[in-house]
């Protein structure tokens, strides 16, 4: 295993895709297929969430089965703010990130004391607690969830139109991916990947291993919170279902399909999974059987995920 190093052609490809995405809403509008703007926004939001998990899992080597908790907390922060009349995105989105990030910091501080499978289980336990907390909190709608009646404004501009929200999500994803790319190659990224490869050695070298891990875990949580806040605005609802452990499982599946530890792994995984769902569901109601078989095939025959087919992570 070695450090992540981006290939030049990937950057070119990313730019081309970005340009195509910028033109997408107008194109769909002309084709009278505006439903797909919302769908594309959803895909990008999940790409963001999966990428945040990829940072924790792929670069940090921490198998968290509770990532949906941060995703859900972000959604609830947005919904609570917006219901209280605070609708400025420049305030709400950073706040959602901050709360989700701090929560991740607290969860990480306890969970990172454990290793391996115990870590998987304790993150799961925290996510379950958060889930039950929101299910029971009648103040925030309990099982019904908390509706978002009016979408965010960004610098005064309303995101009520689907295209506007799409561009904001696209912007958020672009910035995040740029930052992650920087982060992975910076000192922090190198260290965190080195810890993934050999924790004992890094500890012996005097690196504050726990602190690095914790920082990585919290950044991942914060970005998941951002994705959650955006999703609440897209679907108009923050519901406890976002926090269920199967949601964590779905995010994990996205990352693994896409390619663990590849910068674009989360994005590719989200796109592949949601497109498969959209297409397969139309002609086979029991599409989960197909998905399950595909996942098994990935595990058995393409253990490095789809992004591995394109990317470089020379062993």
């Amino acid at each position: 295993m070695a450090f992540y190093r981006p290939a030049r052609w990937q950057q070119t490809a990313a730019l081309v895709v970005l340009a195509a995405l910028l033109a997408l809403p107008s194109l769909l509008d002309v084709l009278d297929q505006s439903y797909y703007i919302g769908f594309a926004t959803r895909v990008l939001i999940f790409a963001l969430a999966a990428s945040s998990l990829n940072l924790v899992l792929g670069f940090g080597g921490m198998v968290s089965l509770g990532h949906a908790a941060f995703f859900g907390v972000g959604a609830y922060v947005a919904a609570i703010c917006q219901q209280a009349g605070l609708g400025e995105g420049l305030l709400v989105l950073p706040l959602a990130m901050a709360v989700a990030g701090l929560f991740a910091l607290a969860v990480g501080a306890v969970s990172l004391r454990t290793r391996g499978v115990y870590f998987i289980m304790i993150t799961l336990a925290f996510a379950q607690m958060t889930y039950y907390l929101f299910v029971s909190a009648s103040l925030w709608g309990g099982e019904d969830g908390l509706p978002v009646y009016e979408r965010l404004r960004l610098g005064g501009i309303s995101l009520a139109g689907d295209a506007a929200l799409f561009f904001v999500v696209l912007g958020a994803l672009t910035v995040t991916m740029l930052l992650f790319s920087r982060l992975a190659q910076a000192r922090f990224g190198r260290t965190i990947q080195a810890i993934r490869e050999n924790e004992t050695r890094m500890e012996a070298l005097g690196y504050p291993v726990l602190r690095y891990r914790l920082a990585c875990f919290a950044i991942g949580g914060a970005v998941a919170g951002l994705a959650g806040a955006l999703l609440a605005n897209l679907s108009g609802l923050a519901s406890p279902n976002l926090l269920q452990w199967t949601q964590s499982g779905t995010l994990l599946v996205m990352v693994i399909i896409g390619g663990v530890g590849y910068l674009w792994g989360g994005v590719v995984g989200a796109v592949v999974l949601l497109l498969l769902e959209e297409i397969l569901l139309a002609w086979f109601a029991h599409w989960h059987i197909v998905l399950g078989l595909l996942l098994l095939a990935v595990v058995l025959f393409a253990p490095k995920g789809v992004a591995a087919l394109f990317g470089r992570r020379d062993d």
Binding site: Q33, S34, Y35, Y36, G38, R42, D144, G145, S235, G236, L237, S239, N241, L242
Partner: peptide, 16 residues
């Protein structure tokens, strides 16, 4: 029985 799934299905029926 999942509000998110219902919302997606509804959007599709309304817009598509």
């Amino acid at each position: 029985q999942n509000p998110d799934v219902a919302k997606q299905a509804t959007d599709k029926l309304l817009k598509k």
